[in-house]
Every structure is written in structure tokens, then in C-alpha cells.
């Protein structure tokens, strides 16, 4: 009689088969594969309330939208995206940073020494794209190839071409490769996209009054959209030496309120949803 295989081993085997057959994990196995598969692995930031608001961390194989209200917040948005990429295991793959030419001209070029000091010396490839269609094509190809640790796309404004279809294509490719695609949109209003998570980013002062330029970065992050639909605004600080985020007490000087009562605030969750019930 064959020994009973435990569930984890079975899942691992199925994943190996999937990798050989080059088929998405879902087509072979059941629900368990979705939970353990590489595409749905979670990227945990280590800040409990942030992870909880994202439904247990950021999904690795997915498109994540990072939005700023103004182009002058570009460095904060890029810094946060790079910090997320830094949390991924180091595997020799470079980071591919695709940017529309106007975004680079407005927000500045990536500066490798500064990037290395804060976010590690992993390889960086910058792809300046002349047009949005070009940027999206490079992004799709890069996301599908699995050659990059993470793919960053940086765009400005609210182009009509970046619609549900375009973002869904990116999301599917990220899902198939199991690697994150981070879409940074500068000076962009919140718009419906296929990204499961949307975060609004702004720069924040460091909480400690004496530390002006430690090797880190500080952000104010607002979770505008997530699978669990729990709005949250918090200040995060990135510590480059420890390679982790920490929850910083909001600086009294600058607090960005969560979007409430605005025309494009997230819709209230429908009654009867799981987390509402839990709260009751």
C-alpha cells in the first residue's frame, strides 16, 4: 500500500509538474494550488495593519497600482516601489524600470548611486518609451518573460489607453510569471483599473526629529483599493539597513486624511460581506 502523501508534498509536486508543462497552476489542481502557487504568493511588508488592509500582504503575481496626486511626489512613489521590489528575494534578476519619456523628463532620471544606497545594488535596466503604446508593449513583454525581479511602469497623467483592458493584460502576465508589476501613475486621479490594489503615495517627514537623512525613506500611504476594501492611511518608514518597513507615528506636521466623502472615494462595502460580519 502506498504511503499517504501529505498535502504539502502533493502541492509541491503539482507545482513542479506545472513548471515542466508550462501551464498555470489552476489548470492542474484544485483550490489548494491557488493558495500555495507562486502566482498568489504574498509579499509581506512586516507592518501588521498595512498587511491586513491588503488582505495579508501584497500579491506577488499581480499588478499593483501606485498613484500620486502630483508629479513632485515622484521620488516617493519610485522609492516605495523600489522598497517593495527590495523585499523580493535576490535572485540575480534585474529590475526593469519602464517610463514614458514625459514622466522621466518631469520627474527626473533614476540615479543609480542613490538607488543602490537605499534599495540595494541589484541590477537596473531603464526603458524610456517614446509613447504609451510602446511602454505598455515593453511592460507586457518584460512581465511575461519572467526575466525581471519586478517590472516598474511609470506614466504621467490619465491616458485613455490605460484602460481596464490594458491593465488586465498586465495583471494576467504578472499572474502567469508570478512576479510583481508595479504601475506608478503620477498626477493621476483614481480611475477604475484591473489592478487588485491601488495605493496613493506621498512623501512624509521622518518621525524622528533628529534624523533628517538616515538611509531610508518615509511615505504616507493610503490604501484606496484592496481585495478586503478596508481603507487605511498610514506612515511607513523604510529602513535600508534592515531592509524592512516600520509603522511610523504620523508626524504632527503633515497628515493626509483618508479619502472620505470625496467624489471618488471607494464605495462602501456591501452589507453582509465577511469583514463586516466579523466586526458585528
Amino acid at each position: 500500500m502506498a504511503p499517504v502523501m501529505d498535502r504539502t508534498a502533493l502541492v509541491a509536486l503539482r507545482r513542479a509538474v506545472c513548471a515542466i508543462e508550462e501551464c498555470p497552476a489552476e489548470t492542474l489542481g484544485g483550490v489548494a494550488l491557488r493558495r500555495f502557487g507562486g502566482a498568489s504568493a504574498r509579499l509581506e511588508t512586516g507592518v501588521a495593519r498595512f498587511d491586513a488592509a491588503l488582505g495579508g500582504g501584497l500579491r506577488q503575481g499581480a499588478l499593483t497600482e501606485i498613484r500620486t496626486d502630483e508629479t513632485r511626489q515622484a521620488a516617493a512613489a519610485a522609492g516605495f516601489a523600489l522598497a517593495l521590489a527590495r523585499l523580493l528575494p535576490e535572485d540575480g534578476r534585474p529590475l526593469i524600470w519602464i517610463a514614458a519619456a514625459d514622466a522621466l523628463a518631469e520627474a527626473g532620471l533614476p540615479h543609480a548611486p542613490g538607488l543602490a544606497a537605499l534599495f540595494g545594488a541589484g541590477g537596473l535596466i531603464v526603458a524610456p518609451a517614446r509613447a504609451l503604446a510602446q511602454a505598455l508593449w515593453i511592460a507586457e513583454e518584460a512581465a511575461a518573460s519572467g526575466a525581471a525581479r519586478a517590472v516598474l511602469i511609470e506614466l504621467r497623467g490619465d491616458p485613455a489607453r490605460l484602460d481596464l483592458t490594458a491593465t488586465r493584460r498586465l495583471d494576467r502576465r504578472a499572474h502567469a510569471a508570478g512576479r510583481p508589476v508595479l504601475l506608478i501613475r503620477h498626477a493621476a486621479p483614481p480611475r477604475p483599473t484591473a489592478a487588485p490594489v491601488r495605493l496613493a503615495i506621498a512623501a512624509a517627514p521622518f518621525a524622528a526629529a533628529d534624523a533628517l537623512f538616515p538611509f531610508g525613506a518615509a511615505f504616507t500611504i493610503t490604501v484606496e483599493k484592496s481585495p478586503v476594501a478596508r481603507p487605511l492611511s498610514l506612515n511607513l518608514e523604510w529602513n535600508a539597513d534592515d531592509r524592512r518597513f516600520s509603522d511610523a507615528a504620523p508626524h504632527p506636521g503633515a497628515v493626509v486624511s483618508p479619502p472620505f466623502g470625496r467624489s471618488h472615494s471607494p464605495a462602501a462595502s456591501r452589507p453582509g460581506l465577511a469583514h463586516e460580519r466579523r466586526r458585528a
Partner: peptide
């Protein structure tokens, strides 16, 4: 302690 350099540089 290398001198702090910015993330983005304007050119």
C-alpha cells in the same frame, strides 16, 4: 558611509 545621493536626478 557613502555620501547620500538622490533617487532621481534631473538632467
Amino acid at each position: 558611509s557613502p555620501p547620500a545621493r538622490p533617487l532621481r536626478l534631473f538632467a
